[in-house]
């Protein structure tokens, strides 16, 4: 079986017609479903948060069978994820896509548990510390995409679980937990 790093690719990845958008509805639905699952799976295991449609992305082409997805196909698969709330376009031109293998709400829950597990209920942390501090090492929060992290933090902020404030340096923000 073909692999990408330590990622096991599904069989359909080696079947050429899956790289062409299928015209028949039922077949297309199945095709889109397989691709959605593959993209989410791959991004989750490889910790990929943003896919650029015009950039090289390992799943968009398969050199073994000499096939690659057309721009139309890439957009179709990612749009299907967007419509399910598992992805978001980062620009109007649909060139960059944020992949949410956890929904924003689920990320918020992860942060909540992280804070509890580390006894940080009343502490202050910078956003950068959450992403790359010692506490988050080995958790899913490690090197999380900043956009997603901020969204999840805002969800918690609305619930009154924390407050976000401007830090001393302009490019970093602080978080005061109050859980």
């Amino acid at each position: 079986m073909q692999k990408l790093g330590d990622f096991k690719l599904p069989h359909f990845f080696n079947y050429p017609p899956y790289f062409t958008l299928q015209p028949v509805r039922d077949t297309r639905e199945k095709q889109v479903q397989l691709w959605k699952d593959l993209i989410l799976d791959y991004c989750r295991t490889q910790k990929i948060f943003v896919i650029g449609l015009e950039e090289d992305f390992a799943l968009f082409s398969n050199p073994v069978i000499e096939r690659s997805l057309s721009h139309e196909a890439r957009e179709a698969f990612l749009s299907a994820l967007v419509s399910e709330g598992r992805a978001e376009w980062l620009d109007k031109g649909h060139r960059k896509c944020l992949i949410l293998w956890h929904r924003v709400q689920d990320w918020a829950d992860i942060i909540f548990r992280f804070v509890k597990d580390n006894g940080l209920e009343d502490s202050v942390m910078t956003v950068e510390e959450i992403r790359s501090g010692i506490e988050s090492r080995g958790t899913e929060l490690h090197v999380i995409d900043r956009t997603i992290l901020m969204r999840a933090l805002r969800v918690l902020e609305q619930k009154g679980k924390l407050a976000i404030f401007k830090g001393t340096s302009a490019d970093d923000e602080g978080v005061k937990f109050s859980m």
Binding site: P16, P17, F19, T20, Q22, T27
Partner: peptide, 20 residues
């Protein structure tokens, strides 16, 4: 194709549509 027994493949470099 309509019956879902075939799938099209337009990706080959010779440009000819293949029915898988």
């Amino acid at each position: 194709l309509d019956e879902g027994l075939a799938m099209i493949d337009d990706g080959h470099r010779d440009g000819k549509r293949r029915y898988w």
